[in-house]
Computed example of a mutant assay.
Amino acid sequence: MSFDHLFKFLVIGDSSVGKSCILLQFTNHRFQPIHDSTLGVEFGTRMIEISESRIKLQIWDTAGQETFKTITRSYYRGAVGCLLVYDITLRESFYHVQNWLQDVLEYSGPQTQIILVGNKTDLQGQRAVSTEEGKKFAEEHKINFIETSAKTANNIDEAFLEISNIIFNKIKNGEITVEQDQFLQMESNNEEIQSIEDNRKKKNEGCC
């Protein structure tokens, strides 16, 4: 299926904050509570439309374990969108957001638009990180902020669409150059993508 632009997205954060559940909910509109931790990188796509332009989102779900960081860092290159995810019921995952943000800034590029995502709002009774704390961190680092639930799908589409609109407008306004946009349209790492998709077919879908 043809498209006008291809946007590479990353979903990053600690293990078990719900990254793969977010990816699965956005790409397949379903939630899977029984899961294994992501090993390395998983991959998904979805087509959206902005101002009559067809945009393909190529989304990479990176493992949160420290041992996989050297692998996943190679996938930061060329990303124009990033969901930086923490678990609102797990304060430690919020503490680690600063380190993940530094990775994005170091290994990605200045064109990358970042949104801080506080996931698992369906577990309000177990909340350990307030909405105000998330907003304050985002404001201090000049990034966007949203709270979501991969289980109920609350704000999942909105998180991706908010950043996609920002990217699209930056391309339109020349803040991301035509050359960069053409680079993003390349179906890079085709062998890696096919390998990831083949592996996913051989096992049950994970969601963290």
Score class of each variant (00 low, 15 high):
K56P: 09
I167Y: 01
E192Y: 06
A138H: 04
P33H: 07
R91A: 13
T148W: 06
G18D: 09
F26Y: 07
K142M: 13
H5A: 07
I156N: 02
L161P: 05
V129N: 05
A128N: 07
C82I: 03
Q32P: 03
T45Q: 13
A79E: 01
S2W: 08
I48L: 05
F7E: 07
H5T: 01
Q111Y: 12
Y86L: 06
L83P: 01
I163V: 15
L39Y: 02
L123K: 06
D4T: 07
H5F: 15
M1Y: 14
V129W: 01
T45S: 12
N154M: 10
I193M: 07
N99M: 12
S20R: 05
V104E: 03
F26K: 00
Y86I: 01
I166C: 04
R200F: 06
S188M: 13
F94H: 06
A138I: 05
C21W: 06
F31S: 01
E175K: 09
R30C: 11
T112Q: 05
Y86E: 07
S51L: 13
N165M: 10
T112F: 00
I166K: 14
S51K: 15
A159V: 10
S93V: 02
L101Q: 12
G134K: 03
W60F: 14
K202P: 04
S149G: 01
E205I: 14
M1S: 14
M186A: 14
Q124E: 13
Q194R: 07
Y95T: 09
H29N: 11
A63T: 12
V104L: 13
A150R: 06
L84N: 01
L83N: 10
R46E: 01
K8I: 07
N165A: 12
I196Q: 07
G40S: 00
W60S: 06
L184I: 04
F7I: 00
M47D: 10
S108M: 05
T45N: 12
T72M: 03
H141W: 08
L23S: 02
Q113A: 10
I48N: 01
I71Q: 03
T70M: 12
F31G: 00
